[in-house]
Design a protein around this nucleic acid. Structure first.
Lengths: 189, 189
DNA sequence: GCCCGCATGTAAGCCGTTACATGATTAA
DNA sequence: TTAATCATGTAACGGCTTACATGCGGGC
């Protein structure tokens, strides 16, 4: 049910076709927030049109059909963004992995944690430069799409990296007093 | 497909019945990582038993049937936790909201951001005390279930709070040079 | 004796994913 | 003329949610 709001949000940046929208989901939006392919986009666009939340906004070559948001659509999106989040089923696979880390023996857990640390560092390297520039303003007196979200991502990955480092330390504490190296021939670096 | 790993992970803490597992999903695990009800748990337990990943581990009163993880089940869980995450469809509604924030006018965006700040603060107040104690060690030389995840949550909410504060500042920058205070949504040039 | 909590399942329907399917335009 | 990209959809399948359905045991 969030797909429709993603579409309304993207269309409120300006008219776009189903194809354009599918491409938009391949970028930062798709890799961090919400993913959708044309197979779900086209039916949803049809439904949104029926409900009067979007409307055709010009046709192009190759059968291209662009859509724009109606006032009703804008209101619907606004209501959703302002509505207090109530218990939609949480489904967060990465976090589930963290919960299940205690099911691994310490050596395996370290492997996972190092991978997480490396991954968050890589993400930081991508986001850092993008956020280093001063606050950009897009025409219309608004912040550009995704700018605030990128700032969130930056802080989230920093926190993830910090956590992984801390967690590795916790595992070390666990191994020290009990088994100095019985199970593992070589001490870790 | 992640449900089975959640079940394997929970069962690797010790034998449990479907009912026990359903209760486990009502706690921190369910509210932050993965949610499931008995309606999905029981069929999945049957399937896991068929596949030899879990096995019956004693019966109790009122038809209670407990299950334990088999060696094959442990191996399956380990493989999943160690496997590099490949593009499972990202579906993160809270983050989607952040992306769409630019579709709101600044006043509405501030409302959302203040709510996020308040929410993360509340979560911190819950997690903080739990993490203040020194590293606990459960019997068997392992960290207790969810301990590392709680540390992650702590850092994540701290980052969210930090972000919301920063984002409010960015919005202020946007409003200052133009008009501080009251303005209509469509006051563009 | 009655109610609450323990304990387990099934059936129908919705939603989303994967795979199938087609055609137009443009650049090499 | 051939390949890549633009552009739009449908069909089958599988997972998840909601609602339906049943019965025992212990405390008050």
């Amino acid at each position: 049910m969030a797909l429709r709001y993603a579409l309304l949000g993207l269309l409120s940046e300006g008219p776009a076709s189903g194809y354009d929208l599918a491409k938009a989901f391949e970028g930062e939006l798709g890799s961090h927030a919400w993913q959708a392919g044309y197979n779900r986009i086209y039916p949803e666009l049809a439904r949104l049109t029926e409900e009067g939340l979007i409307e055709p906004a010009g046709e192009g070559v190759r059968g291209r059909r662009a859509y724009g948001v109606t006032e009703a659509g804008r209101a619907e999106l606004r209501a959703w963004l302002l509505a207090p989040r109530k218990g939609g089923a949480v489904r967060n696979e990465p976090v589930l992995r963290l919960f299940l880390l205690s099911a691994l023996d310490p050596e395996d857990a370290r492997t996972v944690l190092r991978e997480i640390a490396a991954n968050s560092e890589r993400q930081l390297a991508e986001l850092g430069p993008a956020m280093a520039v001063d606050t950009p303003v897009s025409p219309g007196g608004r912040l550009p799409f995704g700018w605030l979200a990128a700032g969130y991502g930056l802080r989230q990955y920093r926190a993830a990296h910090d956590w992984a480092t801390w967690a590795l330390g916790e595992l070390d504490k666990l191994g020290e007093p009990d088994k100095p190296g019985r199970r593992h021939p070589e001490a870790d670096s």
